[in-house]
Design a protein around this nucleic acid. Structure first.
Lengths: 245, 245
DNA sequence: TTAATAGTGTCTATGAGACATTATGCA
DNA sequence: TGCATAATGTCTCATAGACACTATTAA
């Protein structure tokens, strides 16, 4: 098994890093690993690592995620985010990182790292990234704060026009659970009745199972993901009504 | 000046290719270069080439575009599209291509190639790419047909929620010209009166200059790009009303 | 009974699509 | 005058936001 040092040449190296998002305790959260080696030893970073010379990019992202965190992903649940290759972003050599984005529900995640010294979830609001108002002092390695910020914004946008939200809940779920996903990712409360009307009015978004689940109040109908992947019409974020200006 | 062969090692190489789109004669078109060397000698390809070891990715995209086609772009008019790195996509060695997307108006383009044997525009509908119905036999080099298809789809989507269309017209333009951009990119006729109402009703999209331009019929008001970059509300493509199914 | 959440009904404002009509240039 | 395009007005329908109200469970 190659280690990072095998790739330290005088040419380019490629890494594949993954922004794995989930919703835990009502908060949008990301899976990070603590780096066990320099550079940035002891800092938290996105799981990922060097792409092998005969390995496809997304295969590398899945392999590194599994090695460092124990999380195994279906190939379909991984989408490319962006690539980052500014000279100097890694002090060792010229490295171009292809970043991926993944969305999972909480119960599917057995976090246990092999290569990294630790792996755990952080609430986005507790990290210092662009687009997050609060944030204490957890400084991410490399330019991973920027990558994470780009991934969070992509996720927020995709909730509007895709069925992505169903990736964050169990196989069956209530509309309240689905709404709390939207609220956690967008960071704002939604109107319960209107949300229900929009979701049920969008063909193929969810379909009822006929069963109910207990809640604190009245039991809720259970739904499962429908056949649609894109939403017509989209479910838009509430008014960010100031034009650019 | 390094040539491609300088990069042929047993490691990774990075290329930066650009999908440069414009609207010519009412047709969405892309700038391609004819390859002067193997592999794919004589085939048409996206302009681009190898990234230097101490060069930023978007700098390389602009440099290669200028060298091969004579087109100089502002840095701001270039956005990253996606990266393509499947093993075997280039027969020489393992190459990861970072693809960029650019939008220009026709008059800004003095096409003249240095490195490539020829450079010219092709109407998207005349190429064999996904998402294009017709298409004669121009086979693109490498996986550039896929990259081009991804770029075209990105452009179509961005017209909906951004002021991108103003990048395809002159500094001042009529609403008819702007509408014909939308019609060319989306490949469908738009309702003239409703288009006008939506554009003028979107804060910051366009602002009147007070001057007029002659047309075949009644002279049209001239507008220039406004301060907005994103559109609230978006101008959505007409009904693709069949859900996924 | 109260708290809490699920679920329904309705009023209003807004924007989209469709269409009719007028305005203004040129051949 | 006829033609082509620009520009305006208006009708209808669908959807979003807001809000009131009912339903069903547990404590």
């Amino acid at each position: 098994m190659p280690t990072a040092n095998d790739y330290t040449t005088n040419g380019f190296a490629i890494t594949a890093d993954t922004v794995l998002l989930t919703v835990r305790n009502g908060q949008l959260s990301v899976l990070l690993v603590e780096r066990g080696n320099d550079p940035y030893k002891g800092h938290w970073a996105l799981p990922g690592g060097f792409v092998d010379l005969n390995e496809d990019l997304d295969d590398a992202a899945r392999r590194e995620l599994a090695e460092e965190t124990g999380v195994s992903l279906e190939p379909s649940h991984l989408e490319q985010l962006c690539s980052y290759g500014t000279p100097g972003r890694d002090p060792r050599q010229r490295i171009v990182t292809v970043a991926y984005l993944a969305f999972v529900g909480v119960p599917t995640i057995p976090v246990a790292g092999d290569d990294a010294s630790a792996a755990r979830f952080f609430a986005i609001d507790d990290l210092n990234i662009a687009g997050s108002e609060t944030g204490t002092g957890t400084a991410l390695a490399f330019d991973h704060a920027q990558i994470l910020a780009d991934g969070v914004e992509r996720a927020r946008a995709k909730l509007e026009y895709s069925t992505l939200a169903t990736a964050f809940v169990d196989e069956t779920f209530t509309l309240g659970e689905l709404r709390r996903v939207y609220e956690a990712v967008w960071g704002m409360p939604l109107h319960e009745a209107n949300f229900r009307r929009k979701v049920l009015g969008t063909q193929g978004f969810v379909e009822p199972t006929g069963e109910t689940a207990p809640t604190e109040g009245r039991p809720a109908q259970l739904y499962r993901k429908g056949a649609a992947t894109t939403l017509h019409p989209p479910i838009l974020r509430p008014t960010r009504d100031q034009p650019d200006e």
